[in-house]
């Protein structure tokens, strides 16, 4: 069972997150202060940390910095009500592996937690395979079965990202941050229209759809069902 440590001072938020993750098979431990969280993180060695930035006493970033200094490499996701880009950068440079602004959808948090737990995904391979999809990273070519797909550079990168995380739910914000590398959130359906194009290129009529929409959250690339 995957074990999470949540360090969050707001009871209700902590309760919602804990409940949501327990329902999905996680073992969730909870701390309400930075000091207590720091002790538990060292003592219980969880698989992943979720910490709020603003905590009474010792704040989230200090907890993270202390842990990293002590050599604790547990993946950490920082939650914060501060949404400024600089705040985000500060969160990541303090040792956070991801940063999520409040308010957030619980499904978005889940998708990011899953992504962090499945790291590392960037290997040295030159060929990616998902079901009948075959991507040659050296020749920059993609085939579905015997059919060669004609992709634009951006579509190629989008597909590569999805193939490396096949079966995982990827949110729109994650795509925008990782594939486009833009630090802003444009209109929500912008990613959808790009994904729609990719989907139409992946599957001709009659073929099963490989890219599935996860309602309200994002997308998942599946091997042939």
């Amino acid at each position: 069972m995957r074990r999470l440590l949540l360090i969050e001072d707001d009871d209700e938020t902590a309760e919602e997150i804990t409940g949501y993750f327990r329902d999905r098979g996680f073992d969730v431990d909870c701390s309400a202060t930075g000091k207590e969280g720091l002790e538990r993180a060292s003592a219980t060695a969880p698989d992943l940390l979720i910490l709020d930035r603003m905590l009474p006493g010792l704040d989230g970033l200090s907890v993270l910095e202390t842990l990293r200094r002590d050599g604790v490499q547990t993946p950490a996701l920082v939650l914060s009500a501060l949404s400024g880009v600089d705040d985000r950068v500060r969160g990541l440079s303090a040792g956070g592996d991801d940063y999520l602004c409040k308010p957030f959808a619980l499904a978005e948090l889940l998708a990011r937690v899953e992504a962090l737990l499945r790291r590392p995904v960037i290997g040295a391979e030159t060929v990616l395979r998902v079901g009948s999809l075959h991507m040659d990273l050296v020749a920059r070519s993609v085939r579905r079965g015997a059919r060669t797909l004609d992709l634009l550079p951006r579509e190629f990168r989008l597909l590569e990202y999805m193939m490396r995380r096949a079966g995982q739910t990827i949110t729109r914000a994650m795509l925008f941050e990782e594939v486009w590398r833009y630090n802003f959130t444009p209109r929500s359906n912008l990613v959808d229209v790009h994904m729609g194009r990719l989907r139409r290129k992946l599957s001709v009529p009659g073929e099963p759809d490989l890219l599935a929409n996860v309602r309200g959250i994002g997308f998942v690339l599946q091997a042939e069902p």
Partner: peptide
Amino acid sequence: AELYEPLADE
């Protein structure tokens, strides 16, 4: 232009 082209196309 590349970012918004699919949106315009739609």
